[in-house]
Design a protein around this nucleic acid. Structure first.
Length: 633
RNA sequence: CGGGCUGUAGCGCAGCUUGGUAGCGCGUUUGACUGGGGGUCAAAAGGUCGUGGGUUCAAAUCCCGCCAGCCCGACCA
């Protein structure tokens, strides 16, 4: 682009507030929390609530500017919605209930209840409903950058999981999914825009397939900053490039065991073992000295039925069984059972139904109408092919404080698992639910783990890594428009619910995850594009005119070239200034001292490089800075 | 919401077991020396010991309630 260079700004350390400290607050643990606190970017005001000091605010503004440029370029328009939202808005979509305690609620003087917006699907839908009346006005994509609130059960890791945070949220509206102006077109544009944003921010990231969570919808991707300290697990196939989060990740074809599902002789006589106070897999394994891979884990879900289904079929349950070293995946359970919604069964209710929670075995599902037994492939095994002998299973004894060992599916289940119905793992349907006739099914119902076969490339194995979610895009569909009555006449004069997409970027989280990804023992190392300043000029003698004058002169030239400059004009010892410089992480440091000045030079050092820096002639230093700051951005 | 734990100066902590004068380091202020990787010396300011109650002649210390915060788990953008 050949647009005129926007002038950079000049700030002096003495005139701004950068309260660096030698020690971090005791509650800071993650690198971003420690370093942003120590370097004077943020201060804690309460649990999950932070002040953004001048340096931090500059970073936020730089990230925001990149977000705005990419959003605008992709055809979105910025607006600003209220934070304070009447609770009735959320009642319409039942998210006041679905969101639960995560929704911050406050009362006004008349005891009316309001929510502090956690996202803005409802108000934006309400706005469009009253403002857009023709299909000719669609598609439209509206966004804002604003503070959001979530009453987190446990705020942690500084800015990474706060109760108040800065987010960019966008919402698009369409008449169609496919074709020009359709949801997919905008979704793809947003995917590209998000990739541009995070690339321009200098972050290493991965876009992964994801479940859409409580916001609802049909398809979604998460943008994860690659970082070992991240909270989320990312799975990827090195051969095909497929990447997904654990909730979503599919598992490639897993071959059936050589003797067929459930087939194989018992490993021994089934024996009951007293396991007091050991409801968890870990406890039992420690107590009985068995590996989790030899446990059968049984998790009971209750089907959330519609009133109609409830009247017709009664209450229904699913008992999902996976190997002890695996985790049940709710989404896959839902899909395999062919039901829309499930929830972990209430313990008290489950016990009443005859499930000894904590000590449940697959047998507990047998003979109970309305209960589907869903067995994961690696749990539906009687013969251990890897070990070449009968599979040794430990599972619950279906009574409190007892487990059994040498469980064998064929001998001990209490019914024949080899029956034809159980043998059609590919058939997804209603199973034994909703009047179906299959009491048990073998299916993929667990989370993927490293080493699982790739779903996209035969022979390849999934790998895992960690990440921090900084962006999330959803195809919402008509969930909100239907719930709130946003319908528009199309070109055939048919009134149709508007199709929506929504797209979020955690702006404050992006700042923190950059620090997580880019730091060393001495402090932050900002990518130039989002650094609060491009260049730090460190004056060795704050009262030496030849140094202060040169600093002012260089700063002026750099600003004219579009570089933001911070001048460290404090009366501090050199050691303090150097330590602080490393801490706050400005990409380029120019040191103005007697030695260099005697050679008509200044010292030029990149924060990202370990060397001591080099002398650059004064006449060339501005170009060197511009080059370093641009080359990186 | 379960389990563990912590509230003492701006920050990091000791003191509490065994009740009796409020301590240390960093930071801050003043002065001097110093001046290229958190320097030295001297002096100083700064705390209703989270909060309410109880026991006691006397509570930072013992007991009870509450509040706030942290960690692990559950949950989660």
């Amino acid at each position: 682009m050949s647009a005129p260079v926007q002038r950079g700004s000049i700030a002096r350390w003495n005139q701004t507030m950068i309260p660096t400290t030698r020690e971090a607050p005791a509650d800071a643990e993650s690198p971003s929390h420690i370093l942003l606190s120590r370097a004077g970017y943020i201060r804690k005001l309460g649990a999950g609530i932070y002040d953004y000091l001048p340096l931090a605010w500059r970073v936020i503004k730089k990230v925001s500017a990149i977000v705005r440029e990419e959003m605008d370029a992709a055809g979105a328009s910025e607006l600003h919605l209220p934070v304070l939202l009447p609770i009735e808005l959320y009642a319409g979509t039942r998210r006041d209930r679905d969101y639960g305690d995560l929704l911050f609620k406050i009362n006004d003087r008349k005891a009316g209840t309001y929510a502090l917006g956690p996202t803005h699907e409802e108000p934006i839908t309400e706005l469009v409903k009253g403002s857009v009346s023709s299909y000719k006005q669609l598609p439209i994509n509206l966004y804002q950058i604003q503070v959001k609130f979530r009453d987190e059960a446990r705020p942690r890791s500084g800015l990474l999981r706060g109760r108040e945070f800065i987010m960019k949220d966008a919402y698009s509206f369409h008449m169609n999914v496919e074709g020009p102006g359709g949801l997919n077109e905008t979704y793809d544009k947003m995917y590209q825009a998000y990739s541009n944003v995070f690339r321009r921010c200098g972050l290493s990231f991965t876009a992964v397939e994801a479940e859409s969570g409580p916001i609802g919808g049909s398809a979604s991707h998460e943008f994860m900053v690659n970082c070992e300290s991240g909270e989320d697990t990312v799975l990827r196939c090195p051969a095909s490039g497929y990447a997904a989060n654990v909730e979503k990740c599919e598992i490639g074809a897993r071959p059936a065991p050589s003797k067929g599902y459930f087939g194989g002789d018992p490993s021994g006589v089934m024996e009951e073992v007293h396991t007091p106070g050991c409801p968890g897999i870990e406890d039992v394994c420690t107590f009985m000295k068995v590996k989790p891979g030899n446990m059968l884990k049984s998790v009971l879900f209750k089907v959330v039925s519609s009133a109609e289904d409830l009247a017709k079929y009664g209450e229904e349950y699913i008992l999902a069984v996976v190997r002890g070293d695996h985790d049940v995946n709710e989404g896959k359970v839902k899909a395999a059972a062919g039901v829309k919604a499930i929830a972990l069964a209430d313990p008290a209710e489950a016990i009443k139904k005859g499930f000894a929670i904590g000590f449940v075995s697959p047998r507990a599902a047998v003979g109970k109408p309305g209960v589907l037994l869903l067995v994961d492939r690696e749990a539906a095994v009687g013969f251990d092919d890897a070990a070449g002998k009968a599979k040794f299973w430990v599972t619950g004894a279906d009574k409190k404080d007892h487990h059994v060992k040498h469980f064998n599916w064929v001998r001990d289940l209490g019914t024949d698992p080899l029956a034809a119905e159980a043998h059609q793992p590919e058939t997804h349907g209603t199973g034994g639910l909703k009047g179906g006739n299959k009491y048990m099914m073998v299916a993929d119902v667990r989370n993927a783990v490293a080493g699982d076969p790739s779903p996209r490339s035969a022979g390849a194995k999934l790998e895992t890594s960690r990440g921090i979610e900084v962006g999330h895009i959803f195809k919402l569909g008509t969930k909100y428009s239907e719930a709130m009555g946003l319908a528009i006449l199309d070109d055939k004069q048919q009134k149709r619910p508007v199709i929506m997409g929504c797209y979020g970027i955690g702006v404050s989280r992006t700042m923190a995850s950059s620090v997580e990804q880019n730091h060393d023992a001495d402090g932050i190392i900002w990518p130039a594009a989002i650094a609060p300043f491009g260049v730090l000029i460190t004056i060795m003698k704050h009262d030496a005119p030849e140094q202060t004058n040169l600093a002012a002169d260089l700063a002026e030239q750099l600003a004219a070239a579009g570089v933001d400059v911070l001048i460290d004009d404090r009366d501090e010892r050199p050691g303090v200034k150097f330590k602080d410089a490393d801490l706050i992480g400005i990409p380029v440091r120019l040191t103005l001292g007697d030695k260099a000045l005697a050679a008509a030079s200044v010292e030029f050092k990149l924060r990202s490089s370990k060397d001591k820096g080099s002398l650059v002639p004064i006449a060339e230093v501005v170009a060197a800075c511009v080059n370093a700051v641009r080359g990186n951005g």
